[in-house]
């Protein structure tokens, strides 16, 4: 209903390349939304249209119900943005950059800023030119999380961060979500999205190919079933909902469609179960399903068969 971000048939072309091809994206207020796609799928272009840096060629984009191109400066008061590759002014220190970005939004909460500097373990006295990639990223993250805004636009924000800092980042996003902020997290790190996001949109070649909650997505995917049986089982291979069955004596392994789980478990129970694991599909598997043809083209077997 009250969508913070909404795009309708958004098209953006660069010369002959169509970066966004009728993109429909919707992020509700208070939601932490994962924006998944490989490099070049159009994630950054979509975010830059939402930021009013790029003008769309067709379709509509709305931020808080307003036009991000026309009202860019005004809308930016309510959001903070972290690009995937932060470039800093070589002569400004990290602290100066954070303060400047804070003042542009109307003021710096010094307590919050210092606490974040501590949590991200960032030295604010170094000049922009001497920060490493991860530290440049931290400067933008501290500035964004210190800001009192309604929306966080994060475009692959953790690239270059070590796992410890990745954990700090996850905490900060969770706190932002608890404070009622809307977060759009573009990423290709599945574990990050799985841990943080309620809803996910998968983008491919400028089109959203799947959007929904993780639970919904899982529902339409196959679970991985492994079992050690007491007696051999028959007929599994003939079942429509069973794929990639391997039988190794009494050990079986297969992918099962959600609708067929009932049947399969009943058949296994008949044979007698010594051990059983049933894994829901990971986000990675769901994601790879949409990119199966591209993987096949580059010689990698389809994602779902890759599960073992």
């Amino acid at each position: 209903m009250n969508a913070v971000i909404r795009t309708e048939n958004l098209v953006k072309r660069f010369g002959h390349v169509t970066a966004l091809d009728h993109l429909n994206l919707e992020v509700a207020q208070g939601e932490t939304h994962g924006f998944l796609g490989p490099n070049g799928a159009g994630k950054s272009t979509a975010i830059r249209v939402l930021l009013g840096m790029l003008r769309s060629d067709e379709g509509r984009a709305e931020l808080f119900g307003r036009d991000p191109w026309k009202d860019a400066a005004d809308l930016h008061r309510r959001l903070a943005y972290v690009p995937g590759d932060v470039a800093l002014w070589p002569g400004l220190t990290g602290g100066e950059t954070i303060d400047l970005l804070g003042r542009l939004r109307g003021g710096v909460d010094k307590r919050k800023r210092d606490a974040l500097l501590e949590r991200f373990d960032l030295d604010p006295r170094k000049k922009g030119r001497s920060y490493s990639k991860g530290n440049r990223q931290k400067v933008a993250l501290v500035a964004a999380f210190a800001a009192d805004v309604d929306l966080l636009l994060l475009d692959e924000p953790t690239s270059g961060l070590d796992p410890l800092m990745g954990a700090v980042f996850n905490e900060c996003v969770k706190e932002a979500a608890e404070a009622g902020r809307t977060v759009l997290l573009s990423s290709h790190i599945m574990s990050e999205v799985e841990a943080l996001c309620e809803r996910v949109s998968i983008i491919r070649k400028g089109v959203i190919v799947e959007t929904g909650t993780l639970a919904e997505m899982r529902h339409f995917s196959r679970s991985r079933v492994r079992a050690t049986l007491k007696n051999p089982v028959r007929g599994l291979a003939d079942h429509d909902g069973v794929h990639d069955l391997t039988v190794n004596g009494l050990d079986i392994e297969c992918s099962v469609e959600t609708a067929a789980l009932d049947d399969v478990l009943a058949q296994l129970a008949v044979a007698g179960v010594a051990a059983l694991t049933c894994e829901p599909p990971s986000l990675e598997e769901i994601f790879l399903r949409f990119y199966g043809d591209e993987l096949a083209a580059s010689g990698v077997p389809n994602g779902e068969e890759n599960g073992s």
Binding site: W89, G91, T93, E96, D99, R103, L104, P124, R125, S130
Partner: peptide, 23 residues
Amino acid sequence: AGRAGRAEAPASLRGAGSLTFRL
């Protein structure tokens, strides 16, 4: 070697315009 700089921005650095002039 380069020197360590300020941890906080001076009061004069308060907007895009003053940043441009500084740069």
